[in-house]
Design a protein around this nucleic acid. Structure first.
Length: 270
DNA sequence: CTGAGACGC
DNA sequence: GCGTCTCAG
């Protein structure tokens, strides 16, 4: 068996696992899940967006972002991942385009060419396969960051798949992701696109009528360690990035949840 | 799934 | 620059 076949089988097993899980739910449990999803849906996009330290927030149909001109990439990308966003449609990858909505001028994809780094999606293309326009919209240079291929296709890919699993399990999650942008980072290309040393992901879901958060801080290096070892508090991500997450939630809820790094309410693959 | 690169028009 | 093809983690 060659490697391609191994990956194909692993991918098939993941889909099978999700299918079996959903099939195992009885009608009552399904109704509960739907009801939880409606709570998440009730939050408007604006309500859940983090603060911008750069002053340049751009809204697209499928996601919003805050662009950092000095680092030539977003400081965060935020979107709601609904169950209905996940489909099997297999679109052909388009070319990356400069995001014209970024007024200071988003980076050209040529900065990444022969740099040795991937054009790593922050709002993953795989999370936007519900329609061709939504899929293509993720191929904007305002939605990517330089990532090592082993990282992007390794642990970061694992995390993205874990998020898709949670989106199905909890009928939707709100996702905020980005690289930790700081001074002194290595850069690539003529426009000097920064290469982050860490990437973060902050998630919010509603389970059993309760709001839950979880945050990940992953060094920009592939790892075989399980994902739960990269769980941190939202506060820690805020401290590193200067971004304020979920500031419009009731203060007491925000304070309690963001200080916690208890991941027990999130069901991990491993 | 996540991506890159070569070649032809 | 776009389309098609091959390739790798």
């Amino acid at each position: 068996m060659n490697k391609r076949e191994v990956y194909a089988i692993l991918t098939a097993l993941i889909f099978l696992g999700v299918y079996v899980y959903e099939y195992s739910l009885n009608e009552e449990e399904k109704a509960t899940v739907v009801s939880e999803g409606q709570v998440v849906k009730a939050h408007t996009k604006e309500y859940l967006l983090p603060t911008s330290t750069t002053g340049q927030v751009v809204h697209h149909e499928g996601y919003s972002l805050s662009y950092s001109e000095p680092h030539e990439q977003p400081e965060w990308v935020a979107y709601q991942l609904k169950k209905s966003d996940l489909s099997k449609a297999n679109y052909k990858r388009p070319y990356f385009e400069i995001d014209k909505a970024v007024k200071t001028g988003a980076a050209h994809w040529n900065n990444y060419k022969n740099s040795g780094y991937d054009r790593g999606h922050l709002c993953p293309a795989g999370d936007r396969r519900h329609s061709l326009s939504a899929y293509k919209e993720t191929f904007l240079t305002s939605n990517i960051s330089p990532q090592e291929h082993t990282f992007n296709s390794g642990i970061w890919n694992n995390l993205e798949q874990q998020v898709r699993y949670w989106a199905k399990q909890y009928n939707g999650v709100f996702v905020i992701t980005g690289g930790v942008l700081e001074e002194g980072l290595k850069s690539i290309g003529k426009e000097q696109v920064s290469v982050p040393d860490y990437f973060f992901k902050v998630l919010l879901s509603t389970q059993n009528g309760k709001t839950n958060m979880i945050a990940f801080l992953v060094p920009h290096k592939n790892s075989d360690r399980p994902l739960y070892e990269f769980v941190v508090s939202v506060d820690e991500v805020e401290k590193l990035t200067g971004i304020d997450f979920f500031s419009k939630l009731k203060d007491e809820i925000e304070y309690k949840l963001e200080a916690s790094n208890n991941s027990s309410t999130w069901d991990f693959y491993d």
